[in-house]
Design a protein around this nucleic acid. Structure first.
Length: 855
RNA sequence: GCGGGCGUGGCGAAAUGGUAGACGCACCGGACUUAAAAUCCGUUGGCUUAUGGCUGUGGGGGUUCAAGUCCCCCCGCCCGCACCA
């Protein structure tokens, strides 16, 4: 018999699925809907095998849910705007659009050979005007709703990419993609008012029960809610305007020793105008920058301004005002009061500048007068002392009470602040969606009227000069003001590319919709996405932006849901060993072979250093090409390995032996179905009532496997699914046809195996299903059920322990009375031997499971 | 510093508080073969005086008839955030 010919088989079934439109989704009410989505890729070039784990995970879910009777939507598209296209344009003199669409074509082909059950009729590319025109409209709606605004502010500037980055896109002081240190620049930029939703976005996390805790925590931290009070310190120099600070510890106000403002605080700037020394100090602070390394090593420095302010509660008491380098302008009010005894940073500062340290929170059990703070601030619980009206209160009550007093005296109010900043969406680049506004000298900022949408990117564009090509374009930006008709200039900034990915999941519900981004009825039918799958790296970026965007769209009447993704799975990376030659250069896996237990260069024989497991990436050359694997083993084999061994959220190591093992298994399954040593009865032959013990056990194994695989698929325990399928295959392989019913049960078992492995290895499953004599598609078959009576055995193995140690096992009838089990257990030779005639002190019998004898 | 996660054979991993190591990879032995590949069968946590015994889930304690699993303390690794007032 011929080996399994995966090349022919996979191509054949892919063609049939396409021809029969098997995975084209239709809105219908007779089945519950299920929307499964993988984070769509940026078309950057070619996919390697590591990329497709994500898509395979989604595909297994999609195919399983479809078999279970859900109306499944499983679309795919391209997050097609982005800087790499422009960099390629600069490096290779190729137009970004050409480069992008080339990559889409190549990567689309790659996805197709994996046999993924996508509804390709819904494919979208976000760089198409038919797509981005709708987000221009959304932006204008946001503008009307007050959710978009323009302001000048200090922003993150990436000097390599020559563009602004949002806070979320700066990691450790560096740009999120190329990793260049980010600078601060004062620029006029468009922002989306994500902070309007800070509370909702935080509260909404609680409803996302099918999200990993890790992601929820990360978003929680990013939004960063703190409750406290704002209060204004009155100046002693008669200036009416006070210094407003935010604090989470109003209870410690009696321990206040100073007030400090940020070097970027407006007051600091105005004071510096008449004070060269202060101006120098501020310049020094800004020079050091905000990078992590700089912050780590920077000493706490302050500059005494000479200003003093009045204590809010203590008549006559005054505090000095400093400019301090550790006070951030963009958190709270850009000013703090310092309570050295109960804040480590304030303590360090106070010690350095000789400020008083007065403990006002006394730990329970400590002597209020003797308690003092040395080099470590006390931040724990306790009782308020030396604190006027707060004396005797605990910390929580004192916060309350101090807040109330501030409100009563008109000096402040209790409030909540967030770490979250508004989302800056302006980018100074070409390959993005143009921001649809016009700057008119007379009328100011004028939205582009709907009738003039989309604002298309010009096709004739030059990348000769550094900076924004739209800015340099000879005529694109020149236009007439829609309001007054006079010459005006287009906005030349484009949107952050996270704009496109913030609503594509809604576009997929009605991708042909021409008047709006999507049809509301379609969005309301399909959304939220029931299962979203992607990398953890978007925990705060894309996943937070999308949650905000969905709420903003709801406010503007586009759709009804608030949370776009009801379930989220963050898959681990695919890793591979790394190889380096003597010069420290990376080598591809195919350049390395093993010889006498050592890794050597396949051409030169030179020794190769085997490095640690790392995420597959082009830069480390530890990638395995997708076509290479599919050519040698087929898509099913690759899919099987990607689902085996590791649970989805953990990393998966790609190895040659792993792919061999997966390939061996598929061939074993193939042989079992096509080369059985005894003839299978025709499809539909009933299983005889009288059957051999072996046949009976096999039948039960089939039902148990169906039950277990169904449950494990539901829980996304795909590695266990594969184990169950292998187990059943092993059991069926032991049938030799000698006993009554074996042939019928082998057929039933093989049919079940087709169904069970269908979501993972769909091509071979279809082929075997067909070869077993079925005409229809396995993909159209309902998920198999099981007989509950057959998944429990009539006899059970009961473990017998003495003092918790296993001494024997006995096989008894299921649900045998405890007293009977105890009698049998005590008669076991091993038990008798260990007990040596001494009567047991106690016997615990857990029916059908275990007996523990306490001797 | 704060937050989250993890720690089980040579490796990837299983295990509603109830027989630790399912399933696989690798290794070793055997069958088939002139030979190899492929395939099939078998062994494989460690120690041991071996049809048995002891021991074993990062370390230490605790709860329980029974702990990889629950509780407390400690160690190590990974990830995220971080001058956040």
């Amino acid at each position: 018999m011929a080996r399994y010919n995966f090349r022919e088989t996979e191509a054949k079934w892919q063609a049939i699925w396409q021809e029969r439109r098997s995975f084209v989704a239709v809105q219908r009410s007779d089945r519950p809907k299920y929307y499964v989505l993988e984070m769509f890729p940026y078309p950057s070039g070619r996919l390697h095998i590591g990329h497709v784990r994500n898509y395979t995970l989604g595909d297994v879910v999609a195919r399983f849910k479809r078999a279970q009777g859900f109306n499944v939507l499983h679309p795919m598209g391209w997050d097609a705007f982005g800087l790499p296209a422009e960099n390629a344009a600069i490096a290779h003199k190729v137009h970004p659009a050409v480069w992008t669409y080339d990559n889409i074509r190549v990567m689309g082909e790659q996805l197709r050979i994996m046999g993924l059950a996508y509804d390709w009729t819904r494919e979208v590319a976000t760089c198409a005007p038919e797509y981005y025109r709708h987000e221009q409209k959304m932006f204008l709606d946001f503008l009307k709703a007050g959710l978009a605004y323009r302001k000048e502010s200090l922003v993150n500037w990436d000097p390599v990419e020559n563009t602004v980055l949002a806070n979320e896109q700066v990691i450790d002081g560096r740009g999120w993609r190329p990793g260049a240190p980010v600078e601060k620049r004062q620029l006029c930029q468009w922002f989306l008012r994500i902070t309007d939703f800070a509370e909702e976005l935080l509260d909404g996390l609680k409803t996302l029960e099918r999200w990993p805790d890790k992601v929820r925590v990360m978003q929680e931290n990013w939004i960063g809610r703190s409750s406290g009070a704002r209060l204004s310190f009155r100046r002693t120099d008669g200036v009416a305007e006070g210094i407003e600070v935010f604090t989470t510890r109003p209870d410690t106000l009696y321990g206040a020793a100073f007030v400090a403002i940020s070097p970027n605080h407006p007051l600091a700037a105005s004071l510096a105008a008449g004070n060269p020394a202060l101006a120098g100090f501020i310049a020094e602070c800004n020079r050091i920058g905000t990078s992590e390394a700089a912050i780590e090593t920077a000493e706490k420095n302050g500059f005494e301004t000479g200003l003093t302010v009045r204590h809010p509660f203590v008549e006559g008491a005054v505090l000095p005002v400093y400019v301090a380098n550790f006070v951030l302008m963009d958190y709270g009010t850009g000013a703090i009061f310092g309570c050295p005894a109960h804040d480590q940073r304030d303590l360090d500062f106070a010690r350095k500048y000789g400020l008083p340290v007065k403990a006002v929170v006394i730990p329970d059990g400590a002597d209020a007068d003797a308690f003092s703070v040395g080099t470590e601030a006390y931040t724990g619980p306790g009782t308020l002392r030396h604190s006027g009206f707060l004396d005797g209160l605990d910390v929580e009550s004192a916060k309350q009470s101090a807040g109330e007093r501030l409100e009563q005296t008109g000096q402040g109010r209790r409030t909540t602040v967030y770490r979250l900043r508004d989302w800056g969406v302006s980018r100074q680049r070409y390959w993005g969606c143009p921001i649809p506004v016009i700057h008119c000298a007379e009328c100011g900022i004028v939205p582009v009227p709907d009738s003039q949408l989309p604002v298309r990117l010009p096709e004739d564009v030059s990348f000769d000069k550094p900076g924004n090509p739209l800015e340099h374009h000879p005529n694109w930006k020149h236009t007439a003001c829609p309001t007054c008709g006079k010459p005006a200039v287009r906005e030349t900034d484009t949107f952050d590319t996270f704009f496109e990915s913030s609503w594509y999941f809604a576009r997929f519900t009605s991708p042909g919709e021409a008047t709006r981004g999507f049809d509301s009825a379609a969005a309301d039918y399909w959304l939220p996405v029931d299962q979203y799958i992607g990398g953890i790296e978007h925990a705060v970026l894309h996943l937070l932006y999308s949650r905000f965007f969905t709420r903003a769209l709801k406010r503007c009447g586009y759709l009804a849901v608030e949370e776009p993704f009801a379930g989220l799975m963050t898959q681990g990376m695919v890793t591979h060993q790394t190889y380096k030659d003597a010069e420290g250069g990376w080598l591809y896996p195919e350049e390395v072979e093993e010889k006498d237990g050592r890794a050597v260069n396949i051409d030169t024989g030179a020794p190769v250093a085997v490095g640690r497991l790392e995420k597959m990436s082009k830069s480390k050359k530890n990638v395995v090409g997708l076509e290479k694997v599919v050519d040698a083993y087929g898509a099913d084999t690759a899919r099987l390995l990607l689902m085996s061994d590791s649970p989805p959220e953990r990393d998966l190591e790609w190895t040659e032996s792993g792919i061999d093992g997966a390939w061996r298994f598929l061939n074993r399954l193939w042989r079992l179905a096509t080369e059985s040593p005894f003839a299978l009865p025709p499809a539909g032959t009933p299983i005889p009532a009288v059957r051999s013990a072996k046949a009976e056990a096999a039948l039960r194994a089939v039902h148990k496997a169906v039950a277990a695989v169904t449950e494990d698929l539901q829980k996304f325990h795909f590695n266990k699914v594969v184990a169950r399928i292998r187990e059943l295959t092993n059991t069926l392989a032991e049938l030799d046809g000698s006993g009554a019913g074996e042939a019928e049960i082998l057929r039933v078992g093989l049919e079940a195996l087709c169904s069970l492995i269908g979501p993972i290895a769909p091509h071979i499953a279809e082929e075997l299903w067909h070869s077993l004599g079925h005409d229809g598609l396995l993909a159209d078959r309902p998920w198999p059920g099981f007989d509950p009576a057959l998944i429990t055995d009539d006899s059970v193995t009961v473990a017998i322990q003495i003092n918790g140690k296993l001494r024997a096992t006995i096989t008894v009838a299921r649900d045998l009375a405890a007293s009977e089990i105890e009698r049998i257990a005590l008669a076991e030779p091993a038990v008798v031997r260990v007990l040596q005639d001494k009567p047991p002190r106690k016997v615990i019998v857990v029916p059908n499971r275990i007996v523990n004898i306490v001797a």
